[in-house]
Simulated assay, not measured.
Amino acid sequence: MTVVKLAKYDSIQAAVILHPGSISEDDIHEVKVPIALLGAETDHLCLPELLTKLNGILTEKPEVDNFLKIYPSVKHGWILMYSDDNEFAVKVAEAAHSDMLN
């Protein structure tokens, strides 16, 4: 994942990963900038259990601020692929946008 690779260097000041794809533990060990992992409860590409494990690795690095949020009742792509008519989907996507900016 490009964002994780950039987060290994001082090329960026912070990173946010939304509905991640494949991220390895080795990649996370090398992260040097503040990073947020925002995932879906139902995600076949990056299981919530993996995100929790990756966040645990980040938490062991006190020099790297990190944030994890797994959004309930959504699937991979929830922040981009939703219907404007679906009130719940809009609310969750807006919450993720807000979390990303914060």
Rank of each mutant, 00 (worst) to 15 (best):
V3S: 08
V4E: 08
V4T: 12
V4L: 09
K5D: 08
L6R: 07
K8L: 00
Y9N: 12
S11Y: 11
I12H: 10
Q13E: 11
A15Q: 06
A15D: 06
V16H: 02
I17S: 05
I17N: 00
I17L: 12
L18R: 07
P20H: 09
S24F: 01
S24G: 03
S24W: 00
D26G: 05
D26K: 15
D26Y: 05
D27L: 07
D27Y: 03
D27N: 10
E30K: 15
V31F: 06
K32P: 01
V33R: 09
V33Y: 03
V33P: 02
P34H: 06
P34S: 08
A36V: 04
A36S: 15
A36D: 02
A36E: 03
E41M: 10
T42H: 15
P48E: 05
L50K: 12
L50T: 07
L51I: 03
T52A: 07
K53D: 10
G56R: 08
T59E: 14
T59F: 03
T59K: 15
P62I: 08
V64W: 05
D65T: 10
F67Y: 14
K69R: 14
I70P: 00
P72Q: 11
P72A: 10
P72D: 13
S73P: 00
K75Q: 12
G77T: 11
W78Q: 05
I79T: 15
I79S: 15
I79L: 02
S83R: 09
S83K: 13
D84P: 06
D85T: 10
D85W: 03
N86D: 13
E87V: 01
E87M: 00
V90K: 11
V90N: 03
E94N: 14
A95P: 03
A95W: 01
A95C: 05
S98R: 13
S98H: 12
S98A: 13
M100P: 02
N102W: 12
